[in-house]
Computed example of a mutant assay.
Amino acid sequence: MSLFRLDASIMPTASASAELADLVEAQWSAARPGEPVVRRHLGTDPLPPDAWTLATTAGFTPEDQRTPAQRDALALAADLKAELTDADAALLAVPLYNYGVSQHFKTWVDLVIAAGPADQGLLKDKATVLVTVRGGGYGPGTPREGWDHSTPYLRRVLSDLWQADLTVVERELTLVGVNPALDHLKDIAAQQHTAARDVAHHTGRALAAK
């Protein structure tokens, strides 16, 4: 059984999403020693920004008329899709940036879809864990309630479009201790951090058992 892990943090040495994903992976690997983990890090190794355009336009271009760049983009899209579909389970660590998903992750999703043709049900019933973190607070009654445009999108793609067997591990207030304006929330942030770590441990064990 293999695990595909995707990271999207642009801060790999201080990544809150990677911390939780590491816990999930550790539990998975402890239960399945020696099983392969295929990794892709979009933050440190971003995809070419024009790849999606090239792959998409290639789909409307007769094969014998495609440019070398279009063929390369289609090959990249196929590789990205294969990494995801060939694995038995998936772990995606995707932080919230500027109230949405990063351009790196969006490009990855668009390229996987461009690889076609079966983007609907791509992960049907596949055990998939989404780790997502948010620097501030976005819950009911907070000043930024409704500003999280990342998590609903992620659920829509992974669960509704790709039909994954999805578990979400979430943590908020990750910028407490970094942004002085959030210092008054340090106790709540610490509680959320501990709770998220506990959920990550449990989720990793459950992922390995599926």
Rank of each mutant, 00 (worst) to 15 (best):
L84T: 06
A189G: 03
P117K: 14
R144D: 12
L207Q: 00
A87R: 02
A189W: 07
P48I: 04
A189F: 03
P117A: 14
V169G: 01
P33N: 08
A190W: 06
A115H: 02
H201M: 05
Y97L: 11
T107F: 10
A82K: 10
L185D: 08
D110P: 01
E172V: 12
L182Y: 13
L207S: 05
A181C: 10
Q103C: 14
A26T: 13
L185N: 08
R205M: 11
D22R: 06
L84N: 08
Y97V: 12
A115R: 02
D7F: 14
P180T: 04
V129E: 08
A196G: 07
V169H: 04
P36G: 06
W147A: 11
W108F: 15
A18L: 14
G146A: 06
L182E: 03
L80H: 09
V112R: 01
G136R: 07
H202L: 13
P95R: 05
T128P: 10
A82E: 06
V157I: 12
R134H: 12
W147H: 12
P95W: 08
V112Y: 10
R156E: 14
K186V: 14
A21V: 03
Q163V: 01
A26F: 09
E19C: 10
E83V: 09
S102H: 07
D148G: 02
L175C: 11
D119A: 13
D125G: 10
A82C: 08
R66E: 00
L207K: 04
H149N: 15
Y138R: 01
R144N: 14
D50G: 05
L130R: 03
A30E: 13
P36M: 08
P48L: 06
W162N: 00
D148F: 04
H41D: 15
R197M: 12
V199T: 09
A77I: 02
D7Y: 15
R156M: 15
A164I: 07
Q120D: 15
P12G: 05
A209W: 02
V131Q: 05
D50L: 01
A195Q: 10
P143S: 07
D79Y: 14
D50Y: 05
A30C: 11
D119N: 12
R32Q: 13
A31V: 11
S159G: 13
L20V: 02
A31N: 07
Y97P: 13
L91T: 00
A58L: 04
H193M: 11
D110C: 06
A200N: 06
L74Y: 03
R156Y: 14
D160T: 12
K126V: 09
Q70R: 04
D165Q: 11
D110E: 10
G136P: 02
S17T: 10
A87N: 00
M11P: 09
R66F: 06
H41E: 14
A82H: 11
W52R: 04
S9Y: 03
T151M: 11
